[in-house]
């Protein structure tokens, strides 16, 4: 890796993973950029996952920033998906966000590390109290609780 490549990588790490600001930079300005970047990502994820952002309401920005501060983006679809799964796993996904996650899970196959792909087979998925049934691409949302 050339000197420039390593230094570019160190700056990306400071902005996306919580790594220290490389020497010589204006740390205050880099911090402003880091926060602005998180805000921009929040908007992009909220567009992909409107149910998640709306269900978290006033908690959305804090929950997002806490989760994303040390995670570089994998694209807003996967970022929102990973966050929603993590919240669901610790029973912290609001019921109003259940249908959105369960629908995505039932219609697409996502292994957590590569791009989600459409499912070819029927599937039933449940999230935060909502059950979603998908067959031949048609989706039915059933409220379980």
């Amino acid at each position: 890796m050339s000197g420039l490549a390593a230094r570019q990588a160190a700056l990306v790490a400071a902005l996306t993973s919580g790594a220290p600001v490389p020497p010589g930079f204006d740390a205050r300005r880099v911090e402003v950029a880091r926060v602005a970047l998180l805000r921009k990502r929040a908007g992009e994820v909220a567009r992909q996952w409107p149910g998640l952002a709306a269900a978290l309401g006033p908690r959305w920005h804090g929950v997002w920033a806490g989760w994303a501060a040390t995670r570089p983006t994998d694209g807003s679809l996967r970022d929102g998906w990973d966050l929603a799964r993590e919240l669901a796993a610790r029973d912290d996904l609001p019921p109003a966000a259940g249908a959105e996650l369960a629908t995505r899970e039932a219609t697409m196959r996502y292994d957590g590390t590569t791009a989600p792909r459409p499912r070819r087979l029927p599937a039933v998925r449940r999230a935060a109290g909502t059950i979603v049934v998908q067959a031949a691409g048609r989706v039915r949302v059933l409220r379980a609780t």
Binding site: M1, L4, A5, Q8, V12, L15, L37, P72, T73
Partner: peptide, 25 residues
């Protein structure tokens, strides 16, 4: 600008140094 380095996406357009090395790149 650059938007990724070492396989990590920055998610934004980042400045490059105004240096000869960066001009060459």
């Amino acid at each position: 600008a650059y938007v990724r380095a070492g396989g990590v996406e920055a998610g934004h357009l980042l400045p490059i140094p105004r240096s000869r090395e960066a001009v060459d790149a």
